[in-house]
Design a protein around this nucleic acid. Structure first.
Lengths: 199, 199
DNA sequence: AAACTGTACGAACGATCGTGCTATCTTCGA
DNA sequence: TCGAAGATAGCACGATCGTTCGTACAGTTT
């Protein structure tokens, strides 16, 4: 299947723009994204960047999608290679904490920020963020349910999944806001007391 | 001590502006605040609102302070009237959940949003948000330490405080983002399993 | 009554925003 | 080789942003 060189060129710059966009948005928010700023920083024309996406909202949606791909590559995909149940649950938690701790996005977890930014606003961006966030919540919940069904744990799977997700997000929030790594240590201790000493 | 009628008038409009500002900011963020929008909605002149605060950053700082007052009045102050230790810890959690659930701020917990917005940006607004958030975290931690010291609970107080704070914030995040009240029910179940069946 | 202070307004500023139009250049398909 | 299609650039637009300035009015102080 031969590729169209023109489209390939467009896709390449689109990736360049989005790579920068996810970093900017993780710090300054999806609303803090601006065509002009992206264009200046990447030495492109504002109208060129605009034409690539068609509108600011489309740029925001593409940014959410790109961030979701990065998130899944760092957290979800590696966890899926681990055996189901408790081991996978451990992998999810640890991958998530490392993903936050290593600042895969410079502003911490992208979806934590985007969720807080768009939680109370209607629109397509809200829906995209909620879908991405919900997809991860479902992944934790199903893995927790597996762990219980397999007899690895004795707990309410839904509550357990909620707790684990909560601990990760709180660690991210505290660590990014206040600096330091103490919040991650606290989260790991709490997770250990939920899942047992396995790691 | 006699009051200056001019200053009183200024303080009155300042309160009117701030009351609106905290609501706007809880939905659209502190950066989403705009002098012009506030002025239009309140039927004031943009330059008049500007003069009341001196700069946009001062308006943001005043908004954080105003929101902190509302937060303390709803969550912290009532909990301080409850006997120290476990009862007070219960009161903190329940007050916080009700504060979020009742949408004291239309966008959910003000400091959850402001914290996510300014966590990775330096400056005075970041510091103010971090201080407010930290003050509440300290309150939970000290209350948890009391509960342990009084023999009400057997736990690591710091980890327990982190967990409780995490559960509340996660409930707020999920409920505002996705709607519904299921997240609050999950948080309450998790809190109950941390603190015991008491209330 | 005069001098001063603080609130509030209206108009204007430079900057930036998102979004159009138009032209140029590269690449593809006939 | 020629015309269509896509990427990119240049320029201009209306709107909005935060901010400044000059002024009018209300209230305090002397």
């Amino acid at each position: 299947m031969p590729v169209d060189g023109r489209v390939a060129r467009g896709d390449a710059t689109r990736r360049v723009v989005l790579r920068r966009a996810v970093d900017v948005a993780s710090v300054d928010g999806l609303e803090g994204l601006s065509l002009g700023r992206l264009a200046t920083e990447l030495e492109l024309s504002k109208s060129g960047v605009f034409a690539l996406f068609g509108s600011k909202e489309e740029l925001q949606l593409a940014t959410v999608e790109a961030a979701f791909g990065i998130f899944e590559a760092h957290v979800v995909a590696p966890a899926r290679t681990v055996e189901p149940g408790l081991p996978r649950l451990w992998a999810i938690c640890e991958n998530w904490l490392v993903y936050s701790e290593e600042r895969v996005f410079p502003g911490g977890c992208f979806f934590f920020n985007a969720g807080a930014e768009f939680d109370a606003r209607p629109g397509r961006v809200h829906d995209a963020v909620a879908a991405a966030s919900g997809s991860f919540a479902t992944f934790i919940r199903e893995t927790a349910a597996d762990a219980v069904a397999l007899g690895h744990l004795d707990a309410d799977a839904e509550v357990l999944a909620f707790e684990l997700h909560a601990l990760g997000r709180a660690a991210n929030a505290d660590a990014v806001l206040n600096g330091g790594t103490r919040a991650y240590a606290l989260a790991r201790r709490a997770i250990r007391s939920r899942l047992g000493q396995n790691p």
